[in-house]
Amino acid sequence: MLKSFDIYSQNNILKIIVALNLLLVGTGSLLYTDRLITKLEDREKQYVQLYANGIGYLFGSSHPDAGDLTFVTDQILQANTTIPAIYVNADGAVAFSKNIDDIPDGLTPEEKNQFLQRKKLEMRKKHKPLVVDLGDGQLGLVYYANSSLLRQLAYFPYALLTVMAALGVLAYLAFSSSRRAEQNRVWVGLAKETAHQLGTPMSSLMAWVEYMRSDPDQFDGSITDEIAKDVQRLETITSRFSSIGSVPTLKEENLNEVVQQFTDYLAKRISTKVKMTLASQLPPDKMVRINKLLFEWVIENICKNAVDAMKGVGELRLNIVALPHQEVAIDITDTGKGISKANMQKVFSPGFSTKKRGWGLGLTLAKRIVEEYHSGKLFVKSSEVGKGTTFRIVLNAS
């Protein structure tokens, strides 16, 4: 039974752990700050209650002596320097206000009264007004709002969470960038070492081909030619691996001819039970800027994956079409097992594979070659489990 694996699953677990820690810290900060806000709200309410009591004490029916009045005005009424408050007398009129900083300049007494009435209604939505007992059954009301300090503190946890989220995103980007850089170093080193190791047997094989050609009576010329093609293919592969890590050179190539030549070569080296066809809607002389060696590698990787998906039996169709905005597309369709929705986004991830063997790097390298080196696109155009998959390569032909 085939199974999928991801060599970076441990990194995903690490991301989850970091995210959970950030969430715990943020939640703890939010709860602690909320507790502080509640305590501060209660304290401000006590201040306003004291302020209301002072008003009742000052304007109530039983007036105290002058000394007490000085105490009330100096130490109670004047002590409130931060909490916005509006006192409404028993007749419902605004008697006076305190710490209302947004009163426009130049208002007439009537306009100022209307402004404070509107402000009073806004305050009532936030806090229930405090009752002032003026004696003889008369009651006044003190409306109040949170002080600027309390309002700032109320927004603090959200600001803190925003900062933590930004730090989390930066940490993730740094981690991802570091991981990609490490992957690139590994791939470049592995590719160049592979190219170096292929050099010695390549030289030997080329010498054997020349030896076989020197004695046509003993060696069948057609067999020798096919071996020579495979040796040339190995040279191409060596050049591909050598070019990894450097910016490839793009040249104007006839796309129809490039794909035709490569599919002709590949058709003789895959399963005979796979029917491979190529159709093109492009003009015969249509030119596209590509790196031929690397682009053939893309076609090869997708086609070989398709053959594996069909288990060596089925139909493999390549179709080249013109798109709007000076773009061309190559659709590669197989009749294989298809790709599940769960794996649709993973097929291009490094290390992901549904085969028992393989590194899971073929499609990753193909996507990188198309998108980074050719400024194109490579994606799964469509797929249905049990029926097949279509990969689409999009290139700019302008």
Rank of each mutant, 00 (worst) to 15 (best):
L167H: 14
S349W: 15
F352L: 00
E226L: 15
L31D: 08
N80M: 03
V394G: 01
G388C: 04
Y57R: 08
D331W: 06
L173I: 10
A52M: 02
M276N: 01
K119R: 12
A159H: 09
Q197P: 00
K367Y: 04
G245W: 07
I290H: 00
Q117A: 14
Q261M: 10
F71L: 06
A145H: 04
Q232I: 11
I86Y: 03
L77R: 01
L2T: 12
M287P: 00
E235L: 15
M310T: 05
G26S: 11
N184K: 15
I7P: 02
S29L: 14
I37C: 07
D34C: 12
L141F: 08
L121F: 11
R317T: 11
V328R: 01
L198F: 03
F391R: 03
D264F: 06
I237N: 11
N146E: 14
K337M: 15
L255V: 07
V247E: 14
G388T: 04
G336Q: 09
G362M: 06
D65N: 03
N113F: 12
E111G: 07
L69G: 00
K273V: 05
N80F: 03
V321Q: 14
S271G: 03
A309P: 02
I100D: 04
Q261F: 05
E257M: 13
V18P: 00
T263R: 04
T272M: 07
G221M: 15
D308P: 04
Q152Y: 10
S29F: 12
V142W: 01
S97Y: 07
N53A: 10
N11R: 11
A306T: 03
S246R: 09
N99G: 13
D230S: 09
D91V: 10
H374N: 06
W208D: 14
M276I: 05
K192G: 04
I290A: 02
H63F: 05
L141I: 09
S349N: 12
Q117E: 09
G106W: 10
M276Q: 02
K192V: 07
G168K: 03
S204P: 05
D42P: 00
G92T: 03
N99D: 12
E44W: 00
W359H: 10
P283K: 15
S246W: 13
G26Q: 07
G67K: 01
T162R: 08
S203Y: 14
P64G: 04
F352T: 00
V321L: 15
H374C: 07
T272N: 13
